[in-house]
Each structure stands twice: as C-alpha cells, then as structure tokens.
Design a protein around this nucleic acid. Structure first.
Lengths: 221, 221
DNA sequence: ACCTGAACACCGTTCAAGT
DNA sequence: ACCTGAACACCGTTCAAGT
C-alpha cells in the first residue's frame, strides 16, 4: 500500500515543492487555481506535476488530507466531553466552519458527498475516498445521538453530511478568505425585519446548523 | 429602460438563434458550456455573442428569466389555496425541484444568494438582479407564515432562500439531466441503517425541505 | 526513474475590417 | 448599426527527448 522503494531525492523534493506551491495557490485562488501556474511557482515542468498528481483532485487530496483527518479526530474528543446530541452539533459546526474557510476542503467534500460528477476518473465503485474519515466520524456521532434518543432514526450519515455541506454552501464565503472585494457588510441589510445586519458567514453557519438540528430532533417518535 | 429603437432584423434573428443554442447547450453541458461553441452552433461569430450578452451571466439570465418569473408567480397561486405555512413549504419544494433539475437555474440563484463572488461586474450596490422576483415571492410567503404563527420570526427571506439553495445542493443532481454516467443507484447503499436505497434527488429534496421546516417552526416562542 | 518543455487542442475576449 | 473571424492570452494534458 505504501511506497515500496523510497522516492529518488529529486522526486521527493519536487513533490514537496509542488505541495507547498499548491497550498498557497489554492488558498489564494481557490480550488480552481491554474495547475500550470503551480508547476511554474514550484519551479518544475508541467509534466512533473502530472507525474506526482495525475488529477487536480489528487493534488487537492494531498494538500488537505491532514486537515481532514484532524477534523475527523475531533469527533472522538467531542464525543468524550459532551452528550451525544451536543457532540454532533459541535462537530458539525467545526466541519462547516472548515468548509466555509477553506474552498479546497469544500470542493473535496462536495465531490465526495454528491457522488458521481467528478469523484475522480478511477472511481469505479465507491473505492476509497479522502473523505472516508469524515464519513466514519459522522457515522459514530450519528449512531450515538440516535441511541441517546437525541436524533431521529430516519436520517443516515450521508444525509447529515449532505445537509451540512449544503448549509456551508448556503452560508457563503468567509470574509478575509483572499478573493477580491471584501468589506460588503451592507448587501441586503435593512431588508425587512431580517436578523441579518453585519452577520458574517461563521455566525450564520452556527445559526443554520442550529435550525437544522431542531428539525433533526426526535419528533413525536 | 426598454429598447428605444427596434433591433435590426438580422440582429434580432441572431439573438434568437443564440438563445436557442444556449438553451440547448446549458441543458446538455451545464452552466459552464462553451460560449464559443454556442456561437458556432448558432451560426454567428463570437463577437456577436458578446455584443448581445456581454457576460455569461447575462446569457444565463436571458435564458432562464421566464422560468424564474413563472416560479415566482406560483407563490401567489399557492398562497391562495393553502394555509401560510403549507404554502411556503410547497413553494420551496417547487423552487428546489427547479434547481435540482436545471443547473443553470441553480447557478443563477447561487450567485444571487451568496452575494459577491460573481454577481456580475456591474453589481455595485445590490442593483437589480434576475432573482428579485424570487426574493419578493419568498418575502410574501415568509411574512404570511410568520403572521400565522407557523414560522419563527428570527429568520428572514434571505435565510430561507439560502437554506433552500443549500438543501438543493445537498440533494445532488437530478437523474436524466444529461451528464455522462447515470445508472448509479448502488453508490453507498447498504451503508448502515440508512433510509436511502434507490432514492432519487426529488424525494431527497422533499425529505430535506420537510426536515428544514420542522426546524423553522415556532419553537417555544 | 524521473524531469523538461515544446506541442496540441481548447477556451474566453477583443478588435480591425467589412457590409 | 451590426457582423465576422482572425488574433491574443491562457489553460490542461501529453509525450518525445533528455539525464
């Protein structure tokens, strides 16, 4: 499963450089950043990028897999410290926050959760997916919350993951991300009686996750 | 505001042809369809496309504005026939269905609802937006539902619009859309106890809107 | 075994030249 | 007043030639 022979020194170095350039590029330009540009900034030929990362998705995964695993591991911590329902809410908040702060992360979960589309060319069955740790994490939290009677039993992990993803999309970009044209707190403020003045994406996320969880609570079960 | 002088005959004809080609292209390839291709299929030069529709968004709006207005008008009909809360739910279902069936529609509402990003280059303030009819429609339904005590008062039209948009994203593509590689009912079925066998995006949408509305109901107000 | 960079196909956008 | 299509800059991807 792991590399049998260690990589040649120059290959290893090029890989590092590519990853470093990609981190910067994705942060600055979003998940659609020019691959050619990344190769150039890394000081390697375009072919070298493709040799190490055959698809854009492969590069995205390499860049964000650590982050994804870190988020997944938070599930265990929260599950220990909080009652099942609260742990689920808290974890969904953290996941959502990660997604609104990091476009690349959102793109990755997006293509994983929506199935098909662009889940990678080699995705015959479900095979393995960099978001599997998130899947496992949410599965545990969901099951625990259901057993504690704090979550309706007719929703699955995929439902929850999908809904959080949707909610994160709904919240819009976090400010200070990097794109041009910030400082737009006006927008549609003073709409009607909207509780929405200078609220930012993070606050919105918390609010929406809260609403969602009320809908997910055990009704007249 | 409207065209002062009527368009020259050839210009008018080219416009029609472009629109027809765009409808087909967006339906087949999604909102990212090649503009060059659209011009070619319409039998006009690339410059002509840009003369009539200076941005991709302008073309999208021209293609889908009728559809948007039709959806907005449904709000009035539903408001007459149903209690306020039910009317809102039904209308959100229709809007969501439109979005999961028509990628171009989703793209349009997306850039309108998420503010910023690509709301068009000439968007200084909020100016006018092709989704304004939807805004007005949802505003009426929301207000009515709140006055009837069937919707919490701390959510605004924009919240509701955003949430439906998110839910539609969460549902994924409708089958039979046009993309390659359908017939994927397996995917992650048999997950755990997931109520998710061969469920399609439409059913999911209804389910999610239902969940959402339970969360939006007046809690212990 | 790995790297380079030219080559190809494609796309969006502009603009001088036409009618 | 409108149209055409060549031209330009850019991007993703491949592959022969190098070391």
């Amino acid at each position: 499963m792991a590399q049998v022979r260690p990589m040649r020194a120059d290959a290893r170095r090029n890989r590092e450089r590519l990853l470093a350039a990609a981190v910067e590029a994705f942060a600055a330009q979003g998940e659609g950043a020019s691959l050619d540009d990344i190769a150039k900034r890394a000081g390697v030929g375009a072919g070298t990028l493709y040799r190490h990362f055959p698809t854009r998705r492969a590069l995205l995964e390499a860049v964000y897999s650590d982050r994804i695993e870190a988020i997944a591991e938070r599930a265990g911590v929260l599950a220990e410290r909080l009652p099942a329902g609260a742990a689920l809410v808290a974890w969904l908040g953290e996941l959502g926050l990660g997604m609104i702060q990091t476009r690349g992360l959102r793109a990755l979960l997006s293509s994983s959760v929506r199935g098909g589309e662009d889940a990678g060319p080699g995705a015959g069955g479900s095979s393995s997916d960099c978001c599997d740790p998130l899947r496992r994490a949410v599965a545990r939290l969901v099951r625990a919350a259901q057993e504690a009677g704090e979550l309706r039993r007719d929703v699955g992990e995929t439902d929850v993951l999908r809904l959080v993803h949707g909610v994160a999309i709904a919240c819009g970009e976090a400010v200070g991300g990097g794109s041009a044209g910030d400082a737009r707190d006006a927008g549609n403020a003073g709409d009607a009686g909207d509780a929405e003045g200078a609220e930012d994406a993070g606050e919105r996320l918390r609010r929406y996750v809260g609403l969602l969880m009320e809908g997910l609570g055990p009704r007249g079960e």
